[in-house]
Nucleic acid binder design. Structure first.
Lengths: 206, 206, 206, 206
DNA sequence: CATGAATGAGCTTTCATTCAT
DNA sequence: GATGAATGAAAGCTCATTCAT
């Protein structure tokens, strides 16, 4: 899971403990500023200030502002992917409907946690591109999902598995993201998960 | 369909034909620059230049850069909404499955046409906010959809119509947007529409 | 005599009188700062300030700091070249020794006038490169000099004219530049010119 | 030959062998970077890195970046001066024309060797100033040259020896430097040396 | 009305230098 | 002594916006 874009990779790997702390402060500051005020408000000087670090230190570890965004995304993607992968593996044996409901619950919580990173950053930082299109599209997560589908293959009626995976995935993520973005909506987490799970199961099995 | 945010409304309503032409040039230039090079490349000076208009004139008709973006979104939303509304009305009488398939086809084509406006602009221009969350959320479109659902109420098994509308809508739009953004995907328009329609119908009726 | 390096050419040609005045102020300020304090002290902000112009205006007319230096050199080179060309033409008919003495006098005064531009700038601004190697190397000046030599060909004994031109030229310019740089030297202008002229004439004719 | 400018002198004289090695590494790194990429690319951090030394250590031996440049110039000047002095002494007894030709050949080779140091550094580092104006102006070299001229006083017709030394010196150095800087020139080393020697001898003796 | 010259706050980034470990 | 993390003044430059002509 090393950064795919060379110029965005960290400039210098922190060797001393102090340095690692500095890096963490910078990323923490960047995250909180972006969440609160958006990417444009997160100027490098502001990030450094909030991090309690000089602007010079910031540039010791990140070669550019975009590199900070990239690091944020990398971290979020790898954490979320791991959580999801474990969840899928843990629910391999359960009945399809139950497993899917659990998985959707986890996706809701991870996307809520990393909301701004998955939704805002990639669109605001051109160079990040498709780097993190979606947590669910990560390579080995893809394989895990495929395995999961294969595990339930006799229940699934959709013929083209590839398309089914694509549609099911974005059915889930699309609804969840819209739900998270629209804070005027009158639906509870539970209701949402129930409906999405319902839709997915029906789509795959009926 | 007047702009919801006061400060983003056009500064002066063009009354002469010449003035309307100027406004069109500006919006056209802005659109083409944003499509080609992204929102950041669309500086006001650059827009004015491409539009063949002085920067001073640009500010006669738009009070700020954001107002241009807002106008772009307004136009796209109102056009797309109208197209969709007509489509829904025209398919009111047809069987649910057939109607839904047709509607999804239209949504795919309008979102493809206004891709950048629906996907890029709202995220890059904070003030635009939820202004255009989705073409399908527009107020009277909402009513049209509700009418459509009501028209087929005896086929629909989902209890809470509100939630069903929400999920169905983002099921469609989420999948379509992901499809449009990912140009490495190996699915045809037809396959996509078929699957999405399949998922929606099953979700609503089984 | 248009700028040879595209990226250093002026960004926008001043159209109104006011604009031309601004450009002149900028170049004037840049020149005086560089003379007084060197190229490094000539920050763009400082230049703008001394010019009584905003930094934004400066960048309306010059795409970079280097472009300012380039403009300075262009101007100086073309003025000095013109002066020298006229001088050579005016002295075509005079005896070789007298003509050369006059020419060297003119070279001394032009190089004194544009001292910093010919000596400092090209070496401090890498991109300027050989742009202005020496005022005497300008293309059509080269031809003028060649004509001058040809005019006196029966007096000149040196065989290879090309090499003679090169050595004579740098004999003159090298001595003059060293003289101008070393302000602790106890030689008068007259003495210097006499000796250089003497050296050149002897070199070419004996 | 101690540095003339106090603040540029080495901070601490390396006493242990290891320390001397460190100093050599730093100077070597600085030199190679400047030659390859210019003075601006030679940042202190970069020099330290290439030298395989920590930035902290670099500042143990050099009080500033300029001090490194000064040391580079000092070394080059003293080496070149020594070579030239020996050459002049060795040719004291030979006929003037022959001696001068030999001396010019040596000047060409030393200036070629230390090209960047004599040509680039002093102009890029203001504080170095006239420190090293020219290798031939070094104090005791001056005396050696004067002795040489005196040795041939009956052949020299120029009256004012001081001026003659100045002009002859810069006649040589000016032509050589121009020759070294212009790599598009079609003159061989031999031709150049012949012509310069010719010019000097004629100037001094005819 | 249209023009385009002018503005300047504020951005990203560099790099010589210091000093706690 | 040696290390390298940290510093921060200051640089070059952009661009939305204004306003005299």
């Amino acid at each position: 899971m090393r950064p795919q874009i060379a110029e965005l990779s960290p400039r210098k790997v922190p060797q001393q403990q102090r340095a690692q702390f500095t890096v963490d402060c910078i990323l923490g500051a960047a995250e909180s500023i972006i969440i609160k005020s958006g990417y444009d408000a997160a100027t490098t000087n502001h990030i450094a200030e909030v991090a309690g670090v000089s602007i010079g230190s910031l540039y010791q570890y990140f070669s550019s502002k975009e590199a900070i965004a990239a690091a944020l995304v990398e971290n979020a993607v790898s954490k979320a992917t791991e959580v999801l992968r474990e969840c899928i593996l843990a629910n391999m044996g359960k009945p399809l409907a139950e497993a899917i409901r659990t998985i959707i619950t986890v996706i809701l919580s991870t996307r809520r946690e990393y909301n701004f990173i998955f939704m805002l950053l990639p669109r605001q930082v051109p160079k990040l591109g498709k780097l993190s299109r979606s947590v669910t599209t990560e390579k080995f997560l893809y394989n895990t999902i495929r395995t999961f589908y294969h595990h339930h293959r006799h229940e699934i009626v959709v013929e083209d598995l590839e398309i089914a995976m694509f549609v099911a995935q974005h059915l889930v993520v699309g609804s969840i993201d819209a739900y998270l973005e629209d804070n005027s909506i009158l639906i509870t987490d539970e209701q949402l998960v129930d409906h999405i799970a319902d839709a997915v199961v029906k789509y795959l099995t009926k």
